[in-house]
Amino acid sequence: EDAPSSDDLEQFAKQFKQRRIKLGFTQADVGLALGTLYGNVFSQTTICRFEALQLSFKNMCKLKPLLNKWLEETDSSS
C-alpha cells in the first residue's frame, strides 16, 4: 500500500475535522470510539494533533486509515 503524501494527509485531516464537527463528535469521542471499534484508544490530544498536523508523518499514516474507517462507520450508521 502506498504511503499517503503529506498533501493527502493535510487534505484528509481538514476533511476529517469538518466531518467530525458536522457529525457532532468531540475529539475525545473519536479517541474513545476508536478504542471501542479497533481496540486502540487514542487520547483527545492525539486526535487534536492529528487534525493540526502535529504528529510525526509515520503516526499520521498510522492513524489515517483508522480515522477514515471510523468516518465510514459513523456515516453509515447516522
Rank of each mutant, 00 (worst) to 15 (best):
G24E: 02
Q18L: 07
D7V: 08
I21V: 06
F16W: 02
Y38K: 09
K58A: 10
K22P: 00
D75Y: 14
K62T: 11
L66P: 02
F12E: 02
I21C: 04
F12H: 06
F50N: 00
E1D: 15
F12W: 05
S76P: 14
S77V: 13
K22C: 06
E72Q: 09
Q27I: 13
T46L: 07
G35N: 15
P4S: 12
Q44E: 15
I47C: 07
A13S: 03
K62Y: 13
L67A: 03
P65T: 07
P4G: 10
G35A: 10
V41D: 09
N59E: 14
K58D: 08
Q15Y: 06
C48V: 09
R20V: 03
S77K: 14
K17I: 13
T45Y: 06
L37I: 14
D2L: 14
P65E: 08
L37T: 10
N40S: 12
G24I: 00
S78W: 08
L71P: 00
Q11I: 14
Q54C: 04
F25N: 03
C61F: 03
C61V: 13
S5V: 13
S76E: 12
F57Q: 12
L23N: 04
L9S: 01
G39Y: 00
L66R: 04
I47L: 06
T46G: 00
D2P: 15
G35S: 13
L63R: 01
L67E: 00
Q54A: 10
F42T: 10
W70N: 01
G31K: 02
E51W: 00
V41M: 12
V30K: 05
F42W: 08
K58H: 10
P65W: 05
S5Q: 13
E73V: 09
T46D: 14
A33K: 10
S6Q: 15
V30T: 01
S6G: 15
L67T: 02
T36H: 06
L37K: 14
K17C: 01
K58Q: 12
G31E: 08
F16D: 01
L37V: 08
P4N: 05
L55R: 04
F50R: 01
Y38H: 12
T45G: 10
L55D: 04
L34C: 05
F12N: 08
Q15M: 14
S78D: 15
G24W: 01
D7Y: 14
Q18M: 04
F42P: 07
P4Q: 07
F16M: 03
L71R: 03
T45L: 10
S76W: 04
P4K: 10
G31D: 05
E10I: 04
S5L: 14
S76F: 14
L34M: 09
G35W: 04
D75A: 12
A3W: 14
D29N: 02
L55K: 03
S76N: 08
I47H: 00
S56R: 04
K22N: 14
T36M: 12
K17S: 06
L66Y: 13
G35C: 06
T36W: 03
R20A: 02
Q54M: 04
L32M: 11
F57W: 09
S43K: 07
L63P: 01
L66I: 13
S43L: 01
L9Q: 06
K64W: 06
L63I: 11
E72L: 11
E10M: 11
K22T: 10
R20W: 00
K22D: 13
K22E: 11
C61E: 10
S76C: 06
Q44G: 12
Y38R: 05
A33W: 08
E1M: 15
L34I: 03
D8H: 07
K62W: 04
A33Y: 08
N59C: 08
Q27H: 15
T45K: 13
T26D: 01
L34Q: 01
T36Q: 12
G31Y: 00
D2Y: 15
K69S: 06
S43Q: 06
G24Q: 01
F16C: 01
A33M: 06
R19W: 04
M60A: 07
L71Q: 04
Y38I: 14
L71G: 01
D2E: 15
L34D: 05
Y38P: 04
L34W: 00
N40Y: 07
L63E: 04
E72G: 05
K64F: 03
W70R: 02
K64T: 05
S77T: 13
L67R: 02
A33V: 07
L63Q: 01
C48M: 12
Y38S: 11
A13T: 02
N68K: 12
K14S: 04
T26P: 00
L66H: 05
Q18Y: 01
D2G: 15
L63M: 10
S77P: 13
P4W: 13
M60D: 02
D75V: 10
Q54R: 08
